[in-house]
Design a protein around this nucleic acid. Structure first.
Lengths: 329, 329
DNA sequence: ATGAAAGCGCTAACAG
DNA sequence: CTGTTAGCGCTTTCAT
């Protein structure tokens, strides 16, 4: 019984190289001693570290908490741990990520929705990489969401309720995913015979005060009957602006959010929102990364979006469904 | 110029052992080549891994996001990375943590507010450990919050507003920090001549539906004029219950939360809440851990709490401040 | 089927 | 002040 035998048995490729008797003996002894091979000696020898990185825009947002949990679950099943990086908070996160890759602190990383140039830089510098919500994924494995379908659901829902004057609260960040939403929304509405006025939108960062101010200004100067927000947080801004303006949701304004975080239910009335299967997305990304590390071919996945209808959307003022009687219109 | 010289220079303890000329030469060359010592070879040699663990109850809660950011900031300054562990989501997290310690995946860990027996188990098994919000910290370095003072502020605020029938929405988790809050609140109110009825409380887990149901039942059967909640999320449940019961906040019920997360401002009216300096707390914990790892003596810290007064608290029904006229009381 | 030995990149102890 | 050497725990030849 030598080092070699132990190594072979414990790494599970002793088949045909170690006698059954020795094998059993080694396993028993190891279990008894609670022995585990030292991870870092293994890495030093040329193996991959049992750690993956996960870079997200905002750790404080519960949505990314869910993504983390999904990734962590998948990683755990493969004996890996997840190192979290917040990209908004550390302006130097890119070089840190590259550095971590260089020192083999992690075997690979998942990067959430960054601008195309950033993604390009990372794609060159990091050994194993999976992009999430990055339409331009530089030929790296990617997990996407079905934005076209999601926006179609929003358009369907709002059209059905009789809305045609629909605003768009956009996220003020240079990410492809946000740009795409505007396109898909316009396209989907246009299919339903409803054309968006190019003026009916505003941009805000994910800050409650800013989004409230912007929503206020916007609502004051336009007469949309519904508004789609790139993020639930922007919807919260709309709620506050409405309170200040004396407008009632959903009677005088229908609101649709995005992400479907817990926030949707803290708001009154509860917010209709587009749900991303967050933890499943994190899990898929981690699995894709692990496959990629193991040299397997990774098929890019696209996750479905579901509109969760709650109390913030209602028929447009004076509008009822076609079959119904129209009380005072 | 030998391996030794390089090692000495790059680890910053070349003083008096390497000539200035060689030193400079090494530094320049290293910079030019982008050379960095391999972390894991260093660990293998007996050093500490440049990673710390952070175990928190719920990653999806923005409060812990802030704690993470604080810890991450401090860790980063010392060239460390933070491995996040969610203790609610993985029932087996304790053995995973012990295992990670055994394989030297991390150098030490920060553990947030666990029950005393769990803390005891970990205290024995993990090399370097810092407890947070764990009154019973088993002689390990700990970062605490000044609960006595926080509860005093709540008691002062509510008494000043004329409340004497005060309820307590308790967190239904076996953690010392929650038990302490009830004690301190009762004590502080008692000092102000106000005794809590032992019946005026209920317990709920951090689930919006459950906390709403519990709050509903409670409010239906008691006639408190104010309520203190162990967590902002429980306060959200109170808001929903009030909406169902047709009670207005703060006119018919004053509500105080705990943690002062973003949630306070999503609620309408905005929630008065006890603020924990979350990111500072994370930072202090990480610094304490790093000191501990370096063999330095760690002085336990207690962080201050501040009551952030917003719109959810108002004078008790028919009550005005002593100096003022009483309109209809 | 088994064991001996080299070497991953680093640092500490020791000789020059 | 500088360089040589051993060895951290593992896996992978290569010999037995």
């Amino acid at each position: 019984m030598s080092q070699t035998a132990v190594s072979l048995v414990l790494s599970g490729r002793a088949a045909g190289r170690v006698s059954a008797r020795t094998q059993e003996h080694i396993e028993r002894t190891a279990a008894q001693l609670g022995y585990r091979p030292n991870t870092w000696a293994r890495v030093l020898r040329g193996g991959l570290p049992q750690v993956i990185g996960l870079a997200v825009p905002d750790v404080r947002n519960g949505y990314f908490g869910s993504v983390f949990l999904g990734a962590e679950r998948a990683a755990r099943r493969s004996g890996m741990a997840v190192l979290l990086i917040d990209t908004a908070y550390d302006p130097d996160w890119i070089s840190r990520l590259v550095e971590m890759n260089r020192t083999k602190l992690f075997a690979g990383a998942i990067v959430y929705a960054e601008a195309s140039d950033v993604a390009g830089t990372l794609a060159e510098a990091i050994d194993h990489l999976v992009f999430v919500e990055s339409p331009d994924s530089h030929d790296k494995p990617a997990i996407d969401i079905d934005l076209a379908d999601g926006m179609r659901q929003v358009a369907d829902h709002l059209s059905e309720l009789g809305h045609s004057r629909i605003g768009h609260a956009r996220a003020d960040y240079p990410r492809d995913t946000f740009a795409l939403r505007a396109c898909h929304l316009a396209a989907a509405l246009s299919e339903r015979g409803c054309n968006l006025d190019p003026e009916w939108h505003y941009s805000s960062r994910f800050d409650l005060d800013e989004s409230t101010r912007r929503a206020y200004t916007f609502l004051e100067s336009t007469d949309v009957t519904a508004i789609f927000c790139d993020d639930d947080l922007l919807a919260a801004g709309v709620y506050r602006a409405c309170a200040q303006l004396g407008r009632t949701i959903p009677a005088s304004l229908s609101v649709v959010g995005f992400n479907d975080t817990d926030l949707t239910r803290y708001l009154a009335p509860e917010l209709t929102s587009v749900m991303i299967p967050a933890s499943q997305l994190g899990e898929s990304a981690a699995l894709a990364l692990i496959d990629h590390m193991n040299g397997a071919a990774v098929t890019p996945a696209t996750l479905p979006l579901t509109l969760t209808i709650r109390a913030s959307t209602a028929p447009a003022n004076g509008h009822c469904k076609s079959e119904e009687a129209v009380p005072h219109g």
